[in-house]
């Protein structure tokens, strides 16, 4: 198993962990954590799999991951500020379980 494959597989494992947690965790902070793990997993996968071909690192996935990290932190900041407002306005730290359907 090559280095890249190892990390790509780590990515897959982390992705499933994060996905699972995103679905089952109720606390908003945990959902945000899950989302971040999910993001990191995808980034690992991206670089790991792209490296398979040659020896020299490919700049394209690197650029993609750098962008992705910035996006992830912005989304996290947005999510946390929403969570704070939700707590302040309605005292909620979880999403209402039963949705208004």
């Amino acid at each position: 198993m090559s280095l890249s494959t190892l990390y790509a597989m780590t990515g897959v494992a982390l992705f499933s962990l994060g996905f699972h947690a995103l679905l089952v965790q109720r606390h908003l902070l945990r959902k945000v954590l899950a989302l971040n793990v999910l993001g990191s997993a995808t980034f690992l996968l991206l670089v790991g799999m792209a490296r398979r071909g040659g020896d020299t690192p490919d700049p394209v996935p690197h650029a993609m991951v750098l962008t992705g990290i910035v996006v992830a932190v912005s989304a996290t900041a947005l999510a946390l500020s929403l969570a704070r407002r939700l707590k302040a306005a309605q005292g909620l730290v979880r999403l209402p379980e039963d949705m208004p359907e």
């Binding site: 280095l3 902070l29 954590l33 670089v47 490296r51 750098l66 932190v73 946390l80 969570a83 704070r84």
Partner: peptide, 30 residues
């Protein structure tokens, strides 16, 4: 290890540092 020092720096600064700080702050408030 994946020969991506640029990402490593970003990850440490933003992924761990900034996100971590945001999370700690949010936890304290929530």
């Amino acid at each position: 290890r994946l020969e991506a020092p640029d990402i490593a720096l970003a990850e440490a600064a933003i992924g761990a540092g900034l996100t971590g700080a945001l999370l700690l702050d949010a936890r304290a408030r929530l």
